Simulated assay, not measured.
Amino acid sequence: MRVNLTELVEGQKKELDLEVEAKIENIGYFGDEIPLVAPVVFKGKIYNANGEIYIEGIVESTGEFSCYRCLEKFQKKIIGEIHEKLIYESSPQAEIEEYFIIKNNMINISEIMENVLISALPMKIVCDEQCRGLCLVCGENLNKHQCNCEKDEIDPRLAKLKDLLQ
């Protein structure tokens, strides 16, 4: 979805308030595809400050994840904030991938929304901070059942220290 910034660039307006909803199916995250089960919504503004164009706002959606610890599927709301400077295509900084580019007085807001959602995700996504994960011996989900496995394993690098205690 493209947003026309001509009025901002030419100085006719100082600010554009935006509320945009886009249907993005999936976002790529460390080689995985995360399905989005709700539309992506951007609420914010694009403004001109001394000839430079900035974007500010909040992006939110709901994704479907697999827990890093217990592998159960769950849905979680993703909320990300953006406070970025937009760079003109002709600018020398346009070659740096860290900036969003204004081409022909237009900006691709869908690309911005997707990048903000990805940056809002934690490295390890868990269903609950108290998630106990899977048993390392039998693979039982410890959130649902307690297993009776013997968990008396010692790190082989520290096994000699156990001999000192006896």
Rank of each mutant, 00 (worst) to 15 (best):
G133C: 07
E84A: 07
K160P: 01
K76L: 06
F30Y: 14
I101K: 08
L164V: 08
N108G: 04
D163T: 04
F65T: 05
L8C: 04
N48L: 08
I34L: 11
R132S: 10
L71Y: 06
E153G: 13
E7D: 14
E21V: 00
Q166D: 14
K43F: 10
M123Y: 13
L121E: 03
K77M: 07
D128P: 02
L142I: 07
E114Q: 15
V3G: 09
N105A: 10
G139L: 09
H145K: 15
I102H: 06
H145F: 14
D32A: 14
N4A: 07
K124P: 02
E60K: 15
I46C: 11
G44H: 08
E60V: 07
C131V: 04
F74P: 02
E7Q: 10
T62E: 15
G80V: 02
S119W: 04
E111C: 03
N48D: 14
S119V: 03
I96M: 07
E10T: 04
L8I: 01
V126R: 09
S61F: 08
N143S: 11
G28R: 11
K103Q: 12
F42S: 06
E15R: 06
G133K: 09
K76C: 01
N105T: 03
Y99R: 02
I82G: 04
D17L: 06
E33Q: 15
M123C: 04
K45V: 01
H83V: 00
I55M: 14
I96Y: 10
Q130N: 15
M1S: 09
D155P: 00
E72L: 00
K124C: 07
E84R: 08
V37W: 10
T6M: 04
L117N: 11
E10M: 00
V116S: 11
E84T: 00
I53L: 12
K73E: 15
G133W: 04
N143I: 02
I102W: 11
G28C: 01
E52F: 08
A120W: 05
S110H: 12
Y29E: 09
